[in-house]
Simulated scan of single mutants.
Amino acid sequence: MEILKVLSRLLDYPTEALYEHGIDIAEIIANDADLSESNKASLLAFVDQRFSDSLLDWQADYDGLFERGRSLSLLIYEHIHGESRDRGQAMVNLLEQYRAAGLDIGVRELPDYIPLFLEFVSTQGSENGKGWLEDIAPILALLQVRLEKRGSNYSAAFAALVALSEAAIDVQALREQVKDEKRDDTKKALDKVWEEEAVTFGGDAVNGGCPSQVNRPSETQRRDQDVPISFIDNSSAQAAEQAIRS
């Protein structure tokens, strides 16, 4: 699904390279066969507003939403496992899935970073792609309603992802669930988190670091093509796995 590549870019940190292609992105959205008309309209309104603003304003808004607090984290397993040890193992398992599909990532983003995950899912064929999205649909829907509550049009991207997953999600129930949530991005809330955090020493790949620059698998490497798994450089794999476990 090509639209997943577009949504991956729109949910990643806005860059000058992205900013130059607003017209192209709008055209892809308008002509996409998988999106409903209502999802298209919401996404096109998002694109029109974001690409009309200055890039600096867009970047500042992005930082304010996704880089402060945990309720809008773009790391999938932070919503599932928090800071537990299970999170590290889940990321190792996801990295194995990427490798099995012939995809390799660098060292800037973690494997469960949603834009990176969407980049992977976009290579897996339509039916498999829906399956991968369905697996994380509850998280996507939760992010959608939290963004709606903050009045952010980034909610349009997550609403589109939930719709593409075709998962049976009671979005209205989630809206009721988050209605009384206290924001975790205020100065007081952030100070409290710092006070409660345990002091750790040394590297911590689970909480920060792995590039959204990826080498996408070719058409013949898709999971739905039933192709034997190809081997990759073992030293690179061991280094990446050690970085996550450390």
Rank of each mutant, 00 (worst) to 15 (best):
Q89C: 02
A90Y: 11
A90N: 12
N93F: 03
Q97F: 01
Y98G: 00
Y98R: 02
L103S: 08
D104M: 15
R108E: 15
R108I: 08
Y113Q: 02
L116M: 12
L116C: 01
F117G: 02
F117K: 02
L118Y: 06
L118P: 12
E119G: 08
E127C: 07
E127F: 08
G129C: 01
G129K: 04
W132R: 10
I136E: 08
I136Q: 07
A137D: 11
A137E: 09
I139R: 06
I139V: 12
I139C: 03
A141Q: 09
L143D: 09
L147G: 07
R150N: 12
R150G: 11
Y154I: 01
S155I: 04
S155D: 06
A156Y: 00
F158L: 01
A160W: 08
A160S: 14
V162D: 06
L164A: 00
S165N: 02
S165V: 02
A167V: 06
A168F: 03
V171Y: 03
R175N: 00
E176F: 03
Q177W: 05
V178A: 14
D180S: 15
D180N: 12
E181C: 02
E181A: 08
R183A: 14
D184I: 12
K187V: 15
K187M: 13
A189P: 06
A198T: 08
A198W: 13
T200Y: 05
A205G: 10
A205T: 09
G209K: 13
Q213E: 13
N215R: 11
N215Y: 04
N215Q: 12
S218H: 08
